[in-house]
C-alpha cells in the first residue's frame, strides 16, 4: 500500500479520538505496569484506588481511555494529524507493541 493511497482519507473527529485513546492506553497498560513494578508508591496508589493494584490499573486505563477520546475529539486531533486509516492502524499497532513488549520485558527480567 503506497503512502499516497494511505493518505487519501482522514478519519472523522470522534473515531480518530477513539483510535488515539486506544493506542495511548494500550501503550500505557505496559508503561504503568513497568512503573508500578519499579516504584512501590504507584502500586500502592493503584491498590488504594480499587482494593487491588490490578483492578486499580484497569480502572485508571478505562477512565483515561474515555477522557482521552473526548479530549482528542474536542481538539480535532484526527484533522490536525491528518489521521488516515493507515496511520490509525499503525498507531494502534505501535501502541499495542509498546504495551506488550514492556510488560514481557519487565516480568522476564524481574522473574
Amino acid at each position: 500500500m503506497s503512502d499516497k493511497a494511505c493518505d487519501t482519507q482522514v478519519l472523522a473527529s470522534w473515531p480518530g479520538g477513539v483510535v488515539v485513546a486506544g493506542a495511548v492506553t494500550a501503550a500505557l497498560a505496559g508503561l504503568l505496569t513497568v512503573a508500578k513494578d519499579l516504584i512501590a508508591p504507584i502500586k500502592a496508589a493503584f491498590a488504594a484506588l480499587a482494593g487491588h493494584h490490578w483492578r486499580g490499573q484497569t480502572l485508571v486505563l478505562l477512565v483515561l481511555f474515555i477522557v482521552l477520546a473526548f479530549a482528542c475529539d474536542r481538539l480535532r486531533v484526527a484533522e490536525r494529524w491528518r489521521l488516515s486509516p493507515c496511520r490509525a492502524g499503525m498507531l494502534l499497532l505501535a501502541g499495542s507493541a509498546v504495551g506488550v513488549v514492556s510488560i514481557v520485558a519487565v516480568f522476564v527480567l524481574a522473574g
Binding site: M1, T8, A21, A26, A29, L92, G99
Partner: peptide, 30 residues
C-alpha cells in the same frame, strides 16, 4: 497485564468498524 492491552484495543473495534463502514475504502477496512 498483557490482557489489558488487548482489552484497550478491543474497546476501539466498534468505532473503527463503524468508520470503515462510513469511509467504505479498502484502506479503512484494513
Amino acid at each position: 497485564h498483557a490482557f489489558l492491552v488487548g482489552l484497550m484495543v478491543s474497546s476501539v473495534l466498534p468505532t473503527v468498524v463503524g468508520e470503515a463502514r462510513r469511509l467504505g475504502s479498502p484502506q479503512a477496512r484494513r
